[in-house]
Amino acid sequence: MSMNVPSDTGAPPEIEHPRTKLVLVLGLLSIPIPLLGPVAWWMGNQELRQRDDDDRGQLVLGRTIGMVMSILLLVVLGLLVTLAAVGQGWLLTGGQYRTLIKASLVTIQILIYSFALGIVLSLVVGVARLSDHRWIRGAALAFVEFARGISSIILIFIMAVAIPILLDVPQASKILLAAIALGINMGGYGAEIIRGAILSVPKGQVEASLSLNLTPTQRLRHVILPQAMTVILPPMGNLTIEILKGTALVSLVGVADIMQSANNIRQEQLFAQEGTKAVLFLNVLVLYFILAQIVNVLFKLWERRVEKSYEGGRTLTPDELPAHIRHATPGVTG
């Protein structure tokens, strides 16, 4: 049982964790079968408590998916129970669902636009915040303060209502303008995330890339950002969900997103003398919740991919080496 197993590779002996795969499989299976979610979550937690090695990515992923699915399950169960208790039906009509789902495409569209703009702004402004030039730094800081200081709803009104009139472009697309407002908002917060992450990369990495004579752009692209990614992704995921929540505001300037269609349905109900039903908005909330969880899982998968790049492969056997190297005598060995 000695740990000092002599090995010519110098790499530590591999320890197998059969449960890791199981948790991952359970987690993935819980997407079609939510009942398995709690099992994956619980088992993942048990297993995580015993492990402190670095290779926990699959375990964490499996557990996280399990967790998301269990929460989904619990939420749906909770809603069913509540509505049953209140005595109202908990479902809308099929047509209303179809309207909502069609409208969610608009919401997703706005989310994608504002995410794209937000990411670009975050990168540019986040890097500019660390510029050598006082003016660039100052401008970036002013942008960040503005974007974080203003309320996104006021910004949406300014962008989608005031700006087209001020600039005399009444035909401008409301979707685009609202997405720009949200993108600016995201850019402000994202820039601070990126700035912090860049600062968190050890100084030695920058020096090493300087000693290899990489240009500043290459340094950023190949050395700093890939490492900053592990720090960037978790808060960026949260930020994206905040922006998804923010998209509900665009209904107030007349974009036909989920919220707007919900209000249309509400008008119909009022018209039909059915009264306002809380159920309608509960359903809308669930729809947003599902979208948020999709964003969540996508970011978790992305995080997993980034983590993977730190894992590396196994030792190559002599047969796998290129021929001219295989036959040459190795120069030095430890």
Binding site: S70, I71, L74, V75, G78, I241, L244, K245, G246, T247, A248, L249, S251, L252, M259, A262, N263, R266, A278, F281, L282, V284, L285, Y288, F289, A292, Q293, N296
Partner: peptide
């Protein structure tokens, strides 16, 4: 935790209407 997660990841605007 489910309740926290649910409320946290849905828009306030919709919640206000609710």
């Amino acid at each position: 935790m489910a309740v926290i997660e649910f409320i946290r990841s849905t828009p306030v605007l919709v919640q206000l209407f609710f």
